[in-house]
Design a protein around this nucleic acid. Sequence first.
DNA 1: ATGAAAGCGCTAACAA
DNA 2: TTGTTAGCGCTTTCAT
Lengths: 334, 334
Amino acid sequence: MKPKNVSIQKISEVTGVSVATVSRVINNNGRFSKETERRVKKALEEYHYTPNLAARGLRTKRIPTVGVIVPDITNEYFARITLSLQERLFKANYSTIICNTNENAEIESRHLEMLLSQQVSGMIYISGTPQDLSRLSHLPSVFIDREPRLPKGEGKYLLIESDHYQGGFLAGQELLNQGCREIAMLKYRSDISSHNSREQGFRKALEQAGRSADDLTVRIVQQVGVEEGFRQTQALLESVAFDGLFCTADALAVGAVYALKERGLHIPEQVKLVGYDDISIAQYGVVPLTSVHQSMEGIGQLGADALLQIMNGEEPKERHLLLPVHLIRRESSE
Amino acid sequence: MKPKNVSIQKISEVTGVSVATVSRVINNNGRFSKETERRVKKALEEYHYTPNLAARGLRTKRIPTVGVIVPDITNEYFARITLSLQERLFKANYSTIICNTNENAEIESRHLEMLLSQQVSGMIYISGTPQDLSRLSHLPSVFIDREPRLPKGEGKYLLIESDHYQGGFLAGQELLNQGCREIAMLKYRSDISSHNSREQGFRKALEQAGRSADDLTVRIVQQVGVEEGFRQTQALLESVAFDGLFCTADALAVGAVYALKERGLHIPEQVKLVGYDDISIAQYGVVPLTSVHQSMEGIGQLGADALLQIMNGEEPKERHLLLPVHLIRRESSE
DNA sequence: ATGAAAGCGCTAACAA
DNA sequence: TTGTTAGCGCTTTCAT
């Protein structure tokens, strides 16, 4: 039933040349006559030859596949980075195995195991769960958003992230410029460097404006999602009054909008709101959201390029890339 | 530098048993003494043995990997189906190679080539570009949303889709029930069965209500996106007047909202709007959208289960699954 | 219960 | 320019 795949062997038979020569033609290395080349190529075509990457990989210890670990492909931010990565890598003839961890360390670990078993030749970690990654210390790796825990100095890896500190700073400035007095913040988890930096930058802005650090109420949330943003903003409203709110992710800000509305608070008249990421919901949501824009495509491209570079054995110029961000001002803050 | 992966060979050496036995222990087949088992397992652990799937696959002609072809992972509808698929398959110990085609037949073709080279043991096509797929006629495959073009009767494949006809019908009923007189429609491409069925169902509803089929203005759009929906609705407004609009995708409907607003038309008082898919933008957008809800998780799970079944050589009970849909009524139509 | 050995499809010496 | 051959890591007869 299943017409077994034609192998190099078969091609060798029908053309009368050795498998080695066939291989040479396929890989276009070594030398061979125009005539053989023609014959072999014709047979390749005719018999629908498809190289067996497993076999090739076994031999060369290199398969043109990279693994991508991502917490939530359903989140537009990650989806767009991932897409951009995959497009770039595909152009360089690499396949991409995308693994969704749902922020779960055990799942992540199993995914990693699998990728290692597949002998992938590189890895991209998009904001992976902080954990010991020594297992991949010898694999070309690119980390996005979060610093890995790797044995010092070991491994060829690289960190790419937006300038979250600056992003937080811009968000802070905006709320202050718009005249907010009492400021609160919804922040995703406390163990994630990107969100921490946003907080730091935000605080810096307050500080520069002469506000005391104690004045800022920060509420930590454990999930990024509209529902969560809604609930946590409700909780925030119970405990403090504020006229400015910074959410470290847009989805949270959207939830906040509903909580504020429910409370009868007008945006931006009574409360001004700034989100982060500038995904489409920020633009098209109930209240157009002021947000810190990150270039997801930029991150993806840089990430892919960097990985290709280290997989090629080149030394990357920079071990740590920081991409600029900017604030998009919309209705929610002005 | 790169600590070469320990192989079964290495384990054989350090334990003093043959590679065959090590293999047996790993795969827990054949017989071996408790004692050897213990020794081998200990060594496996100690040396961080990671099986080489390429080698195994070469031998067994089966690798635990499936390919997924998807047009746009950035679209929440596809992202959620894909995620659900990947979770289910992962539980069954399969990895997933996700390939984004951007609705481009050539890219799709290259992806397919790659997946075939990788010797994947199954394929999932989410709404792939209509094209000749005979190359994978012998590979266990599941198609979602669109009927493949395969040589008749050949291949073990299966089609899973929502009941788009019914969805279109519900949308039509809703607009009629809400009293719309002049109805228009924005439809994604004319060569895609799922969107065609939506139109058919929609027309059926109009017909049942005694409307003439000629009364419906349908505008075809070539892309799903807010921008596109905006532009095409503008164009629609130029040519006809309507008080009811059905968009075959939510993103288009969101665009429509802006075009209508710009024109000074109120939703739902002057124009009622129904979208399709019920993705989160429908819920959280400027105007909460009435939309036809599809169970993306359901599709994903059924798809994964079906594929696992055929990969196991079982005959699926049904070759064509039709999932129920329902209408979620929100502000845009009432 | 265990070992020896063949072979999956391919590439890379090494020969010719 | 081309062929022969070893071997990548693994599973699977076939012996023992």
